[in-house]
Nucleic acid binder design. Structure first.
Length: 594
DNA sequence: GCCGTTTTCGGCCCGACTGTTTTCAGTCG
């Protein structure tokens, strides 16, 4: 049985939770949590690491956990875990997801009232029994019932577009308040994670109560969870939790770093501070006796500088090597919105889009883009009204006509003709080579047969990637965030194949996808694979999703040199044609040798 | 359980808020 790293990580997380219930040493518990996280970000198959005995090289994984992971990966089972699990019911894990409920309270509920699931807890609370436990009371019981309701309603995370809309409104209203000095978003939203747990907002003010009061009475607020002078939490529309912190102006840079996170990044910063004899918290440096005085810190950049580091953009603050790079002065010059010149993979009313060709083109012009690639679905995606050969030819003709039109000629804008070509069951393509050759480029995507196993799916995708007409690989894993899991696919193997063949891999910028995942881009970049940021837009508004794609590219350490659609007209054409001409050249060489 | 220019023992981030307490434990980020 094969164990994916995520699965191994999940088991380590569960071990940590069970150890907590047993009241184990908190540092031992943390060791398991840290190890789980370390495994999440592996850039090669865990089986390889186990087979080559290199698990122990990963920071946070020592002798004991190496043995356990090895047992798990090689036998598909971990005796230690099975034994631990036997002392608690299966449903206990779900209880950890309830807000306000931690290991201590779960243990009390389990030991004294036999609570072993969320359903049990709901019954116990409704019967009024939870309030009778020591350490519990009426309020706790009411809060637990509310937490259960919230948990069922919206499992806790949100797609970035949902949070972005709320953030924009709240930040702009708070910014207009006269007691507000500096203001910024923080947390995973500022780091542009693919999904967001809650929205963090940080404000500097000398009148914190006024700001907090304004905040909890904002029209977007549906419920106040906690409300203090400097820290408040509310539930917004759509169920998004939003935390506001108010600090003094001189504390703002410290607080901004602290509340942007990630937690792991912050721990590294604290340890660097300690090396200099300074203790770093969310407000200031505290200087140890005999240590040098830290410089005055006016912004984040100066804070990083004081720790011997270049400024680290929020998207990189994930403890994935950014500290070392900042120390060495080798942080990449990350791609920015203004670098984008065009994009590919957009839909029109010809397939399942909601806007016409010309409407999409004009929206792209309004965004300041020089070119737009149209990639409507191919015929096998009949649910999306995919184009057959005839309709595709008509669309290509229409695109050529528009390009020759006075409007386009004068504005210097250009449409590229493409397709989002289905990768069929065996890795065959949905159009013949002759048809594909009439297009400027081809996006290849999987839209069916998601239940195949990893080996089959990987072979299927790699076969498509090896096809000379495939320019770029669309939404590699097919995931729909918070809704549908990725189909299984060996991503390092696909990256390898893309590197060999010169196939571009897409960052699908739709907030539902954000696929290929940012964690894989450093590997792809190392292998020389180029990226294309595509909105997969089905409406003119969908083009705006490119902003999320930029965030993900930045999280993946990508620069404008790594992203092909930063190239202007005049240069992008050669990139689209490169793979085909390489094949033609190779064929030519072969022919001349014959 | 992990880790090591304080290195094989003794650390491991720490402050705000809540609720049940009467001085603090639990949870969260």
């Amino acid at each position: 049985m094969s164990e994916t790293p995520a699965h191994v990580g999940e088991i380590l997380e569960h071990i940590a939770q069970l150890l907590e219930l047993k009241g184990e040493n908190p540092f031992k518990i943390r060791a398991y949590t840290n190890a789980a996280r370390a495994l999440e970000s592996l850039s090669e198959p865990i089986e390889t690491l186990v087979a080559e005995g290199r698990l122990g090289e990963i920071e946070g994984i020592g002798k004991a956990i190496t043995e356990k992971v090895t047992e798990l990966v090689t036998t598909g089972r971990l005796e230690y875990y099975e034994e631990l699990k036997d002392s608690f019911p299966e449903g206990i894990f779900e209880l950890f997801e309830l807000q306000g409920l931690g290991a201590k309270k779960i243990k009390a509920l389990h030991d004294q009232l036999g609570v072993s699931s969320v359903d049990d807890l709901e019954r116990i609370c409704k019967e009024g029994k939870a309030a009778e436990l020591t350490g519990f009371g009426e309020k706790t019981q009411t809060k637990l019932l509310k937490a259960i309701e919230d948990h069922r309603k919206h499992a806790g995370r949100f797609r970035i577009n949902v949070v972005a809309l709320l953030a924009e409104q709240l930040l702009s209203d708070l910014r207009a308040h006269e007691a507000v000095g500096q203001i910024s978003e923080g947390g995973s939203f500022r780091r542009r994670k693919e999904t967001i747990g809650d929205l963090d907002i940080l404000v500097s003010s000398n009148r914190p109560e006024e700001v907090s009061g304004f905040f909890i009475h904002h029209p977007l607020v549906e419920e106040v969870i906690v409300h203090g002078p400097t820290k408040s939490s509310v539930r917004l529309q759509d169920g998004v939790q939003c935390d506001l912190r108010v600090v003094k102006p001189e504390e703002f840079p410290f607080a901004l770093v602290y509340f942007t996170g990630s937690k792991e990044h912050n721990i590294r910063l604290r340890s660097r501070a300690l090396d200099r004899g300074w203790s770093l918290n969310e407000y200031r440096f505290t200087v140890a006796e005999g240590a040098d005085q830290p410089p005055v810190i006016r912004d984040e950049k100066e804070l990083y500088k004081s720790l011997g580091l270049d400024f680290i953009p929020p998207e990189l603050r994930e403890d994935k090597g950014e500290i070392a790079a900042a120390e060495a002065g080798t942080l990449p010059d990350l791609i920015e919105w203004s670098n984008l010149r065009g994009t590919f993979h957009c839909h029109t009313t010809a397939s399942d889009g909601k806007n016409s060709l010309i409407e999409m083109a004009r929206a792209a012009i309004n965004l300041g883009l020089e070119y737009l690639g149209i990639a409507d679905h191919s015929k096998s995606s009949f649910q999306a009204h995919g184009l057959d050969t005839v309709r595709l030819a008509e669309q290509v003709a229409e695109i050529r006509e528009l390009n020759a039109s006075k409007e386009f000629q004068e504005s210097g804008f250009r449409l590229f003709a493409g397709t989002e070509c289905d990768i069929l069951k065996e890795g065959d393509l949905d159009f013949s080579d002759e048809v594909l050759a009439t297009l400027d480029y081809v996006v290849a995507s999987v839209h069916s047969g998601f239940t195949a196993d990893e080996k089959t799916m990987t072979e299927r995708i790699i076969r498509a990637i090896r096809h000379p007409q495939i320019t770029m690989m669309g939404h590699l894993t097919g995931r729909l965030l918070l809704s549908r899991d990725a189909y299984p696919v060996n991503i390092p193997a696909v990256i390898e194949a893309a590197a060999e063949t010169g196939t571009i891999i897409e960052i699908n910028a739709s907030p539902w996808r954000l696929d290929m995942d940012w964690r894989w881009w450093p590997l792809a970049k190392e292998k020389g694979v180029k990226c294309v940021i595509n909105p997969d837009a089905h409406t003119v508004f969908g083009l705006q999703d490119l902003h999320y794609g930029i965030g993900i590219a930045r999280k993946g350490w990508l620069t404008k040199a790594d992203v092909v659609n930063c190239l202007p007209l005049g240069k992008i054409e050669a990139v689209l044609a490169a793979k085909r001409s390489k094949q033609v050249q190779q064929k030519g060489i072969l022919n001349s040798e014959n």
